Simulated assay, not measured.
Amino acid sequence: MTPDLEQRWKQAQMPFDGKIVTSGVDSSMQTLLKALKYFTKLLDANPQNFYLYHDWHEHDGYLTQAKPISSIKLKNMVANEQSLRASMNGEAEVRTAVYPQSNEWLMRWYIDPDDSAYCDFEFCIATTAKNNPLEQMYLINPQGLNQLAARTYFDKSYGG
């Protein structure tokens, strides 16, 4: 997590004031790609600056800095399995994450480096977000999604 996002999480500010949808069971690579491609289509609906980072929240809580990323580069990153695997850090429980300058949402994904069959994704969205795609996520992965309060989820999953 970034220092700013950590502060937002601890103070239940956007996007941690809303809900999070998580893949509740092991997702296939196909499901992960479908979810991320759906997600990247939403970027065009509200153009703004986006930031990418490796999220160590579950691993050990290490804080890192995000780097700007264009929507085009992000779409290329999730275009296929090879590029998606290349986006990963390679450490256990370290997710790749992206969020907009508005902090309306946070999207994270993970591919286990030791078990390529294990993938997961999470989409956290603020209560005031202009576009709420959570219902659509159920169409992508109807059998294995959980919806929780975002702050509670991050409180329970903290590895630091």
Score class of each variant (00 low, 15 high):
160 G>A: 11
15 P>Q: 09
41 K>L: 13
55 D>N: 10
113 P>M: 09
89 N>V: 01
58 E>K: 11
121 F>I: 09
133 P>L: 02
26 D>G: 04
136 Q>H: 03
70 S>G: 13
160 G>E: 08
37 K>H: 07
38 Y>T: 03
83 S>W: 08
16 F>T: 06
137 M>R: 00
92 A>M: 14
61 G>M: 03
17 D>Q: 11
157 S>V: 07
75 K>Q: 14
154 F>W: 07
101 Q>K: 12
108 R>D: 13
146 N>E: 10
147 Q>A: 05
51 Y>N: 03
31 T>A: 03
147 Q>I: 14
17 D>E: 10
157 S>H: 10
136 Q>K: 05
108 R>L: 15
119 C>G: 03
89 N>F: 14
42 L>C: 12
77 M>E: 15
84 L>E: 01
57 H>T: 05
111 I>G: 08
100 P>H: 09
10 K>Y: 00
64 T>P: 01
151 R>C: 08
82 Q>M: 04
72 I>M: 07
82 Q>C: 02
52 L>M: 06
151 R>L: 10
89 N>M: 06
132 N>R: 14
9 W>P: 01
18 G>D: 07
58 E>W: 08
60 D>Y: 09
34 K>A: 13
65 Q>L: 02
30 Q>M: 01
81 E>T: 10
88 M>C: 13
157 S>D: 06
118 Y>T: 02
96 T>E: 13
2 T>S: 00
129 A>C: 08
76 N>T: 11
126 A>C: 11
158 Y>R: 14
74 L>P: 11
129 A>H: 09
116 S>Y: 06
133 P>Y: 02
52 L>T: 15
47 P>H: 07
6 E>G: 01
5 L>P: 04
112 D>E: 12
76 N>V: 15
150 A>N: 05
79 A>D: 10
99 Y>A: 09
7 Q>E: 07
140 I>M: 00
119 C>T: 14
28 S>D: 00
54 H>M: 07
131 N>R: 15
85 R>E: 07
111 I>Q: 11
15 P>R: 10
60 D>K: 08
57 H>V: 04
158 Y>T: 02
4 D>M: 01
118 Y>D: 11
156 K>Y: 03
74 L>M: 14
131 N>P: 04
13 Q>K: 09
132 N>Q: 12
57 H>C: 03
100 P>Y: 10
153 Y>T: 10
144 G>C: 00
28 S>W: 01
100 P>S: 11
43 L>H: 12
90 G>C: 02
85 R>Q: 07
70 S>V: 09
67 K>C: 08
18 G>F: 10
1 M>E: 03
47 P>M: 06
148 L>Y: 04
44 D>R: 15
9 W>K: 09
33 L>F: 02
65 Q>F: 00
32 L>N: 04
153 Y>C: 09
82 Q>A: 07
56 W>E: 04
82 Q>S: 06
56 W>H: 13
91 E>A: 13
